[in-house]
Simulated scan of single mutants.
Amino acid sequence: MCFRPPSAAKAIKCPSCGMFNPPTLEKCKKCGADMVKPKDVTDEK
Results as ranks from 00 to 15, higher is better:
M1K: 15
M1L: 13
M1I: 09
C2W: 09
F3G: 07
F3A: 11
R4I: 03
P5N: 14
P5I: 10
P6N: 06
S7P: 03
A8V: 00
A8T: 05
A8R: 07
A9Y: 12
A9W: 15
A9L: 11
K10W: 05
K10M: 06
K10D: 11
A11C: 08
A11W: 09
I12H: 08
I12N: 06
K13S: 09
P15M: 06
P15L: 13
P15R: 13
P15W: 05
P15V: 08
S16W: 01
G18D: 04
F20W: 08
F20D: 12
F20T: 06
F20S: 08
F20I: 02
N21G: 03
P22A: 12
P23E: 15
T24A: 12
T24M: 07
L25E: 13
L25A: 12
L25G: 01
L25N: 08
E26I: 06
E26V: 06
K27W: 03
K27G: 03
C28N: 00
C28P: 03
C28S: 04
K29G: 07
K29Y: 11
K30R: 12
K30T: 11
G32V: 06
A33S: 15
D34N: 11
D34Y: 04
M35H: 01
M35A: 02
M35S: 02
M35G: 02
V36Y: 03
V36R: 12
K37F: 07
K37S: 14
P38Y: 00
P38W: 02
P38E: 04
K39H: 05
D40S: 03
D40N: 06
D40C: 05
V41Q: 07
V41C: 01
T42K: 13
T42E: 14
D43M: 06
D43W: 05
E44W: 07
E44P: 00
K45C: 01
K45V: 09
